[in-house]
Design a protein around this nucleic acid. Structure first.
Lengths: 235, 235
DNA sequence: CATACAGCGATTGTATTCAATCTCACATTT
DNA sequence: AAATGTGAGATTGAATACAATCGCTGTATG
């Protein structure tokens, strides 16, 4: 699996894949835009082959749609699916938080040092500090990126590659939803992260699960209330 | 998006991708197996380029893991994630069933004929008939494939490509779990499909959602009870 | 005037070729 | 003897070249 939190991409293919995804999420490539492989190849200074590989991956991720011999286009922003995506994310992240807490508890009871776990845990601490600093200095525009990294970090602590992969996809969609309309998430939402992290560190699976579920649920409510005038059918 | 139910794959890349996935799910490629691009290329009589594209897609799908310049290996069967995967699937499919029912209701109230919807609906009817026939003739080995097609068909009725894509991935994992240990699913489980379909057709969103949730929940319980002796830690 | 269709430019899909990197065995050193 | 450095072979990553298909325009035809 590619390094999820710190993306030190060694190959052009991975780098281009991330670049295209970002361009889609942040609106540089609007929905419906036709994507030609040649243009991307020349734009990033590489050949078509790695571009094609990136497109195949992004197709599975749901950001582009391709038809054989007809080319690729940017997918529609899943705004109609927002409510359901949040619901799935709630179930998903409740599971990752619970598992992360379980694993933290196991960390003190027995077994080796598990350097990988501590590495991720340390990274999460840095993310929390960075986010607090961003809040203190008023740079709320940094929060969305940090928010994703925090949640993916918790998923990584859960040591479930399946759940982490699923969250990565849903998180991408959620980010897409936010970025298309609003530039930053709430500050209060960020503050809840500390509590979740504390529950995980304490090995309290129930508290971690419920804390994460409430956190995501609140995020969902915030999102829906913000856009309720646009989507009257949502709920 | 690729044709999900009837997979008429025009390009070798898509065909090989499906073939590799099947080989992984049904154990021909055990977990941890090292995959070299050349071997797959010669095996399927194509060059390495489409094989690489297939591998990039399967990597996102979670069936293989790759490290730059080091090659790809078959991922571990997500047996530890089974419980959580079922939980996520329950939330996911409850949403697709509810949306499918909503869309069915809208079908009669207003709007054009929506041939695409009816096409999928007709395909679902055929799947149900096929499954019943398989049950009647004792060919339970056909049920897993039909089961996936039914659930993906409902997702397609929901007209949410995001949810459908997510379900496709989770369904792949679930199938992987089943195929690795047990050859067929229960007959009773199949019989529940008719009720869900009826709720969708009636446009009864609540009944569809709850029926699907109960169906998936029962499937989860059945799976866990069957393997509870192997995984004592799974709840 | 609407319509079918043939040709052509553009684009995608694949094959081939070359460059970059990793793995692993083996020799060397402490 | 254990650890470390080194080089050959194998494998992946990417670039280029070629084949197959699509979409569109322009024309001929009823």
């Amino acid at each position: 699996m590619q390094p999820s939190l710190a993306s030190g991409d060694p190959t052009p293919r991975a780098r281009v894949q991330d670049e295209i995804r970002r361009d889609i999420i942040f609106g540089k490539l609007p929905a419906g835009t036709r994507i030609t492989e040649s243009s991307l190849a020349t734009k990033y200074g590489i050949s078509r082959v790695p571009v094609r590989e990136a497109l195949r991956a992004l197709e599975v991720e749901g950001f582009v749609e391709s038809k054989p011999f007809a080319g690729s286009t940017v997918s529609e922003i899943p705004v109609d699916d927002a409510d359901d995506l949040f619901a799935v994310r709630e179930a998903l992240e409740a599971a990752t938080a619970r598992r992360a807490a379980r694993r933290a508890a196991a960390q003190f009871s027995a077994g080796g040092p598990d350097t990988q776990w501590w590495e991720t845990r340390r990274e999460l601490a840095a993310i929390l500090d960075e986010g607090d600093e961003a809040v203190a200095s008023g740079q709320v525009e940094l929060l969305p990126e940090l928010n994703i990294r925090f949640h993916l970090g918790v998923a990584e602590l859960s040591r479930s590659s399946s759940l982490t992969a699923l969250l990565r996809q849903i998180a991408g969609k959620i980010e897409w939803l936010y970025a298309s309309d609003v530039d930053s998430r709430g500050i209060r939402s960020w503050a809840e992260h500390r509590g979740i992290m504390a529950a995980i560190d304490a090995g309290n699976a129930e508290a971690a699960e419920q804390g994460m579920a409430a956190h995501v649920h609140g995020s969902r409510s915030g999102y829906l209330s913000r856009f309720k005038e646009k989507d009257a059918n949502a709920m």
